[in-house]
Write a protein that binds this DNA or RNA. Structure first.
Length: 568
RNA sequence: GAGCUCGUAGCUCAGUCGGUAGAGCAACGCACUUUUAAUGCGUGGGUCCUGGGUUCGAUUCCCAGCGAGCUCACCA
């Protein structure tokens, strides 16, 4: 209901109401969608006294109801505004916007041309002294004229002058606005500004008596208004649910949060550089697949209407990437989303980002070397060091340990039976995995637990497979790929039997994949690395939701509609 | 899916041994031309998550629901 209304108003096609209705968000945001007198009535809410405000809640103004607090009659507003406080604030800011327009400023200007980003200003003048910038009364320094734009994150007015802090590009810079420099209209504009507003300023750089680099503003341009209140300026937004649901607020209110996603982008860039420089080809394979293969997991199902075809969101790109190697793309990698219809936790999100790469003529030993190099190099590029702090541990992403699974289990569980593959793997998961804080490669997995891996030539009980662990959880999984089509078909048939026995995570038969292998897959090594988890490590984030911009949450329910039905 | 914890102003948090609530920031008004969590004085703002129960009375106690966090299980 909410989304439909918003979509309609956003498209501008919503017809004007044919009779007076409670003032809606759409009406405020798209004045053309509201009758003119709706706007006029907004203007009335000015200089309210307590008495005036109270009476306004239940009184018609100009024959139109404002409904400041009549929640049940104003459902659309109810969806948008959290409270009467917000509703009033929005209306008040709307008036300020009109007052700003009356000063000759555009309400929502189309552009602003700054000469510098705040980052650039800091880069160039952060170390320049106050003497050099300000000069002396006898010998003033030549002025550094610049203009920057940003969001107001702090504002302090003091009579006929004031300071504000602009934030842009994750950096902050103070501005100083005084009436005798910007004029009466300019200062009137300054006084109409609120925390969260966007402005552009032109002026010259100086340092205050406390030494802070500041723009002495000579021209102030209004750019956009914040119609809602910002989070508390000292603590920021700390409610984790709000941070995830309203990431747009989290990102500008908590610069640490922003930094995580900047780093995430750097990680992706570093990975691409790493593989590009080794002649890997970046590819994109289907996210919607008729058969969800390449991993053991429950898929999401969707439907293509025109083809009347059920499709699965992919649980892995693996089988398509190996088809490409059959096709002669010897080195391929893909960084993209996988979808698994399973639980959520601090380490699991239903959609997550996976790097997978395949290299013809390589085996798992080659991939071990490549992995250690990749992780160390990415850490170095992103953090400038290979050492990270994670969950109270100091981890060096360049110091690796390699152990066979049998050896790892033997150390943790003396006297354990190392010959039963499934039991060995269970012991590993139970006793070893969470202890692998420092980067560790575990190799030579039991064949029983590795259906897609190639057996060791001299030891059919083990396969050429490794996983690697950092911070106590798995980051990647790699093996020499099974490329015998007869063996592959046999394993699919085993999976099919398991599926019929009720295992809905067992692989489906993929005839076309077997056919691809039948054309000849060269000996190939392949690996998958969880990008979200790697990002957690490199940013010190303890939850996967802290490294995913919009993690999956249950939609918020608005209680008056829901609870009414529930109790009926 | 199970267990534990949490839900009070826009935000960050107190508090009520059961008698319908407070602070700081934010907002509004006034003062203030080098402040920076500006300051001073004043004002407004709350279905204390929702529903039910116990009670003279529930934001507080009990039950259920919704949402979130953590841990465990499955999984990467």
């Amino acid at each position: 209901m909410r989304t439909a209304a918003q979509a309609q108003s956003a498209s501008g096609s919503r017809p004007a109401p044919d009779h007076a209705k409670p003032l809606s968000f759409a009406a405020i945001f798209h004045p053309s969608a509201a009758v003119d007198s709706d706007r006029a009535s907004l203007m009335v809410i000015h200089n309210r006294t307590k008495v005036a405000k109270r009476s306004m809640r239940s009184t018609d103004i100009l024959g139109l109801r404002i409904h400041c607090s009549s929640r049940k009659e104003s459902r659309v507003s109810e969806w948008v505004f959290e409270s009467e406080f917000e509703r009033n604030l929005f209306a008040l800011r709307q008036e300020k916007l009109e007052a700003i327009a009356a000063l000759g400023q555009s309400r929502y200007p189309n552009h602003y041309r700054a000469t510098h980003t705040i980052f650039a200003v800091r880069a160039q003048w952060n170390e320049v002294s106050g003497e050099a910038l300000n000069g002396t009364p006898e010998q003033p320094a030549p002025r550094v004229e610049i203009s920057v734009a940003g969001r107001i994150m702090a504002i302090r007015a003091q009579g006929k002058a004031g300071f504000a802090t602009l934030q842009q590009g994750g950096e902050r810079l103070q501005i100083y606005v005084r009436q005798d420099a910007v004029g009466e209209a300019g200062y009137a504009l300054y006084k109409l500004l609120d925390m969260g507003d966007h402005v552009g300023v032109t002026g010259y750089l100086f340092r205050t008596r406390t030494g802070e680099l500041t723009i002495h503003v000579e021209s102030l341009t209004f750019l956009a208004k914040a119609m809602l209140a910002l989070p508390e300026k000292y603590h920021g937004l700390s409610d984790v649910e709000l941070r995830y649901r309203q990431r747009y607020v989290d990102l500008f209110a908590n610069l640490d949060s922003r930094e995580v996603f900047v780093k995430r982008a750097k990680i992706l860039r570093a990975i691409r550089r790493f593989f590009d420089s080794r002649d890997y080809l970046e590819v994109e394979t289907p996210m919607m697949q008729p058969i969800a293969g390449g991993a053991a997991a429950r898929p999401f199902v969707t439907h293509h209407n025109a083809l009347d075809l059920d499709l699965y969101l992919r649980i892995a790109p693996e089988l398509y990437l190996k088809r490409l190697v059959v096709g002669g793309l010897d080195r391929v990698y893909e960084i993209n989303r996988n979808f698994r219809n399973e639980g959520v936790s601090t380490q699991h999100n239903p959609e997550f980002t996976m790097l997978e790469f395949y290299q013809a003529y390589a085996n798992y030993h080659d991939l071990m070397d490549l992995t250690e190099e990749l992780i160390a190099q990415v850490a170095q590029e992103v953090n400038g060091t290979t050492v990270v702090e994670f969950n109270g541990h100091t981890i060096d992403m360049a110091q690796w340990q390699r152990l066979t699974m049998a050896e790892a289990v033997r150390r943790a569980v003396p006297g354990a039976d190392l010959h039963d593959g499934k039991a060995l793997y269970a012991l590993f998961e139970q006793h070893v995995e969470h202890t692998l804080i420092q980067p560790t490669l575990i190799y030579d997995y039991p064949t029983e637990v590795s259906p897609l891996s190639k057996a060791k030539p001299d030891d059919p009980a083990h396969v050429e497979r490794f996983e690697f662990f950092i911070g106590g959880f798995e980051i990647g999984n790699a093996f020499s790929e099974l490329n015998d089509p007869v063996e592959q078909r046999r394993r699919f048939e085993q999976q099919l039997a398991a599926r019929e026995a009720g295992d809905d995570e067992a692989h489906q038969m993929d005839e076309d994949y077997v056919r691809a292998l039948s054309y000849g897959l060269p000996p190939t090594g392949g690996e998958g690395i969880g990008i979200d988890r790697l990002t957690m490590l490199l940013t010190g984030s303890r939850s996967i939701r802290d490294v995913i911009l919009f993690p999956l949450l249950r939609p918020e329910k608005h209680n008056d509609a829901q609870s009414g039905e529930a109790t009926a």
